[in-house]
Each structure stands twice: as C-alpha cells, then as structure tokens.
C-alpha cells in the first residue's frame, strides 16, 4: 500500500535521505524509527507530495500521492500536530477537513468521540490545547475520510501514558480491519508494542528492517537500536 524505492534527498552538502526503500502492507503497522534528524519527516513529506525527492520514488496505493483525487479519502495523514492556527477551534479544524473531503458534519462528532475530545474541549481554540490534545485532534483529522492508509509523523509525541495506550489500541484495530499504518517515532518503546514491522533509520540511511523479533536477534530491541544508531552517529558525515 505504501512503497518507497531508492528514495534519495540531497541538499547542497548533505544527504537527508540516502537510498531509502521499504514497503508497508495492508493490515500491518510499520514503525519508522530513528533518532531526531534521521530523515523520517523528510521521507514522510516526500511520500505525501509536500517535498520532492532528488531521486527514487514514493507511492501510495500504487501512485504518487499528489496524483490521487481527494487523497485524504484514501490516505489519512498527520505530519505535524503543532502546525495549526491557534485561533481556530478543534471542532472547526475537523469541520474544514470534513467539508473539503465532502463528508457530512456529523462525521465531526463521530471523530471527536473516537479520539476522546469532549464537546466542550472541541469548542476551545487550539492556542489552549496541550500537545496531547493536538495529537488526538490530528489523529482524528487523519481518520476523517475512513482511509485505507494512515501516515502519522510522531503521533505519540506529547501523549500521556493513557493516550499512548489508547493510540496503540486504535492503530491495532485499524490494521486488523485491513488498514496499512506507517508511524514514525524517535522513541523505541512507543513503537515496539504496536508495530509488527520496524524500519530503523539514522542519518538518512535504513540501518535495519524487519519484525521486532528479527531485529532484536535474541537481545533486547533497545540494545539493537542503540548499537545501530550509535554507530551511525559516530560515522563521519
């Protein structure tokens, strides 16, 4: 459902992405894991057509995202929960999304229920939202069109432990219903319990990919993660 092949993004003197390839199948949750600055957001923005690759390709449902019609009806995205107008209410953000997608307004209330925002909270402006509330709103926005593919950049950031547990249940449920889920994180424990595949990235290169069991190879996954990323950190730029 999602395919990145040999994706490279080069700036003047640095490669933000270097030959990144992986796929996300229907019915699975893939954790895109790597330290801050590893290139996760760059890869996801190219995937959603907001940035251009230097070479390689990225497709969703077999086509470049930007070629999809009404893409959010098939592919839900949350790229930055903080990127919101502080003067807009949560309900209004969802309403704008529903209007664009061509959905009835009752969908807004369904989504608010789903992500656990009360009616009162939904009428407050985002300037007063915690990061956790913004994440819930952003996840809800991504789910407006009942998409088959879900792309979430650091969705667990700012969520409290209950929130993280809620998100795990939500994403497992969506994958169980056949949805392809790709979520990025810089924190291993956020993804290891929800993802059935992990793509480990650092300094723009994929260091390892596979199931959590394959990656840990008898050790703890954390040890593997630290070994691989610390090596990448020491290598010359």
């Amino acid at each position: 459902m999602i395919e990145l092949s040999n994706l490279t993004k080069a700036y003047k003197d640095v490669k933000a992405l270097d030959d990144v390839s992986f796929t996300v199948a229907a019915g699975s949750v893939t954790g895109f894991l790597g330290p801050n600055g590893a290139g996760k957001s760059t890869a996801l923005r190219i995937l959603v057509g907001l940035a251009r690759a230097t070479s390689g390709s990225a497709t969703v449902l077999g086509r470049p995202y930007a070629e999809l019609h009404n893409p959010a009806a098939q592919v839900g995205t949350l790229l930055d929960a903080g990127a919101q107008h502080p003067g807009r209410t949560g309900r209004e953000v969802l309403t704008l999304g529903a209007l664009t997608l061509g959905l009835p307004k009752q969908r807004v209330d369904e989504i608010l229920d789903l992500v656990g925002l009360t009616s009162k909270e939904s009428r407050r402006t985002l300037g007063g939202y915690s990061l956790g509330m913004r994440q819930r709103l952003g996840i809800g926005h991504a789910l407006l069109g009942s998409p088959r593919v879900l792309i979430l950049d650091e969705p667990a950031n700012g969520l409290d432990p209950q929130g993280i547990q809620w998100m795990r249940g939500l994403l497992r449920g969506l994958a169980g219903a056949g949805c392809a889920v790709l979520l990025s994180s810089h924190l291993l424990h956020e993804v290891e319990q929800v993802a059935d595949h992990i793509v480990l990235i650092a300094r723009g290169r994929v260091l390892a990919k596979g199931t959590p069991a394959e990656l840990s190879q008898g050790r703890t996954l954390e040890q593997t993660f630290l070994d691989l990323t610390s090596h990448a950190d020491r290598s010359p730029a």
Partner: peptide, 24 residues
C-alpha cells in the same frame, strides 16, 4: 459515510477557503 475518490469540486474548495477567512 465514505468520501469518494473523485476530484474535489472547485466550489467545495471555494467554500472551505471562504470559511477560513472568517473562522478565526
């Protein structure tokens, strides 16, 4: 409740962008 994968009609974009002018 599913949204269709047809191109978003221009009047719908127009309605959304008009709304954004006054909703903050």
């Amino acid at each position: 409740m599913t949204a269709t994968a047809a191109p978003i009609p221009f009047p719908r974009l127009l309605a959304v962008e008009t709304r954004k002018l006054f909703d903050t």
